Simulated scan of single mutants.
Amino acid sequence: MPSDPHQLLLFDIDGVIRDVAGSYRRALQATVEHYSNWRPSPSQIDDLKGEGRWNNDWDASLELLRRHGSPLPERNALIAVFSGFYFGGDPEDSPENWTGFIGDEPLLVNASLFETLHAHGWAWGFVSGAEPPSARFVLEQRLGLNAPPLIAMGDAPDKPDPTGLRQMSESLLTSSEATTVAYLGDTVADVQTVIRARAEQPERTWISLAVAPPHLHAHPVERRAYEQRLMEAGADHILSSTMAVTEWLESAAQR
């Protein structure tokens, strides 16, 4: 990390660092189907996420069941079912023993991205609603990052509450001079988190970067509609991919 950074780039994880269409979203679908014999489509999940209130996939599962008119299970029971699909074992156990959908998560970045950020003078970290074992697994074991700055589920209130974003920025930005914090996410809730942080801490420059989740990249019409929702929610810049953030950094440096 830069020794006295004035600029910080924070990342969501799901849909930004890894593709979760075949894991978290699949677990959401399987959990809803387990309780209702109805499997929500990817577009129905996108529509729900587009409301900006359902960043937590356990709560999203319950909400889909409610809207479908299905009896609602006890929340802890649903969490156990969801975890069984996603981890396929004890989340606190060694990842070698996991047999669930977590094994089907293509990476969307490589470790060189964070070296590039450092070279541009940007500090970086992660603010995600992912469960801590899952987040640490992708960042530390799969990407090989050494003790990456991370706020995960349970470390702060769920987005769009900006507490996690503010805590991470205050931890990593020690300079008393003007500072910039950019956050890259893939949902309306991510955009709203930045907008709320801007209202609560206007002395910093807050920038909302957004990217459509990977499962939409092969569907231009649906992708454009999703990106339009992100812009309408207040995103400052739409990126073509997470790795394209380096192009944004270079253009920002020229301004």
Rank of each mutant, 00 (worst) to 15 (best):
D4G: 09
F11A: 01
D12K: 02
V16S: 11
V16K: 10
V20A: 08
V20F: 04
G22C: 06
S23M: 03
Y24S: 14
N37P: 00
N37T: 06
R39D: 04
S43A: 14
Q44L: 04
Q44V: 02
I45L: 05
D47S: 14
R53D: 02
N55K: 13
S61I: 01
S61H: 02
S61P: 00
G69N: 03
P73D: 10
R75D: 02
N76A: 12
A77V: 12
I79V: 12
A80C: 01
F82P: 00
S83R: 08
F85D: 01
F87G: 02
G89R: 08
D90R: 10
D90E: 12
E92V: 02
G100S: 06
L108Q: 13
A111G: 13
H118V: 11
A119Y: 05
A119R: 12
H120K: 04
H120A: 14
W124E: 12
S128R: 03
G129M: 11
P133K: 08
R136G: 03
F137W: 15
L139W: 15
Q141R: 15
R142I: 11
L145N: 07
A147V: 08
L150H: 09
L150S: 06
I151V: 11
I151N: 04
D155Q: 07
D155Y: 07
A156R: 11
P157D: 11
P162V: 14
M168A: 09
L172Y: 06
T174E: 14
S176R: 14
T179Q: 10
T187Y: 08
V188Q: 06
V188D: 05
V188H: 07
V188L: 06
D190T: 08
D190Y: 07
Q192M: 04
E200P: 07
E200C: 09
E200I: 07
Q201I: 09
E203I: 03
E203W: 05
W206R: 09
W206P: 06
I207L: 10
L209S: 08
H219M: 00
P220E: 04
V221F: 00
A225E: 04
Y226P: 02
R229V: 02
R229L: 08
R229N: 08
L230E: 12
M231D: 00
A233P: 06
D236G: 12
M243K: 04
V245R: 07
E247I: 07
E247T: 11
W248M: 11
L249A: 08
L249M: 13
S251W: 14
